[in-house]
């Protein structure tokens, strides 16, 4: 069953094209890795799948939501996002950030302590986020994915800024998502851990040039 289907989608910022004529179908319970050079459109494609970019042409659905209409706002509720920038509010602690996110989305707040423990942030749970390292802040985003339990995981450079332990943890979480039947789409510059069984999507200049297992 297709989780996402894009047909001739164009995304621009001003007059500059980020994605040009993208055709793509993503199957459920499958892992995809998007590769390509800097500025190729990897993050833009991921943002499009998250309902964060508005197509200027073409059509597409993700998780049954039309990304060309205001339905994309509803889509975001079912998507898990891991960006490569600092997420959440720097002045709040990991616990406060997760509580705010869970309460506003109706996620289960009881999962927060175990999620923080799983990503190794229990001892930093009450420290202001701005005092944590970049790697620890990314772990918080992973903790949110564990609380949210999304159907579609969108991970932008998930192994960046992480130490060996963090990379192992991220690999474990991706495998757990795969085994739970979620669809995982991630971007990567470098080689993925060998056990990450993924379908490759190569993007260059905003166009998908290859899609193969």
């Amino acid at each position: 069953m297709a989780v996402a289907s894009l047909s001739d989608v164009v995304v621009t910022t001003g007059s500059f094209p980020l994605l040009s004529g993208v055709n793509l179908t993503l199957e459920s319970a499958t892992t995809y890795v998007i590769t390509g050079p800097n500025g190729a459109g990897k993050t833009s494609l991921l943002r499009l799948l998250a309902g964060l970019e508005v197509p200027s042409r073409g059509r597409g659905t993700v998780l049954g939501f039309d990304i060309c209409s205001t339905e994309r706002r509803e889509l975001r509720r079912y998507v898990g996002w891991l960006g490569h920038e600092t997420s959440f509010y720097p002045d709040l602690s990991p616990t406060e950030n997760l509580l705010f996110a869970a309460r506003t989305t109706g996620a289960d707040v009881d999962l927060i302590p175990s999620a923080l423990e799983r990503v190794g942030l229990t001892h930093r749970a009450k420290v202001s986020l701005k005092l944590l390292s970049a790697g620890q802040q990314r772990r918080l985003s992973l903790a949110w994915l564990l609380v949210r339990r999304p159907q579609l995981w969108l991970l932008d450079e998930p192994f960046a800024s992480l130490d060996d332990e963090g990379r192992d943890l991220t690999s474990q979480l991706i495998k757990a998502a795969q085994s739970s039947g979620a669809t995982v789409v991630l971007t990567s510059h470098g080689a993925l851990p060998a056990e990450t069984n993924a379908t490759s999507i190569v993007i260059v200049g905003g166009r998908i040039v290859e899609s193969a297992t």
């Binding site: 998250a50 964060l52 920038e85 997420s87 959440f88």
Partner: peptide, 17 residues
Amino acid sequence: QLESSRGTATSVQILSI
């Protein structure tokens, strides 16, 4: 400014409040 950084803005957008 509380939501001005790209990462914070995106994470708040994803919450779809």
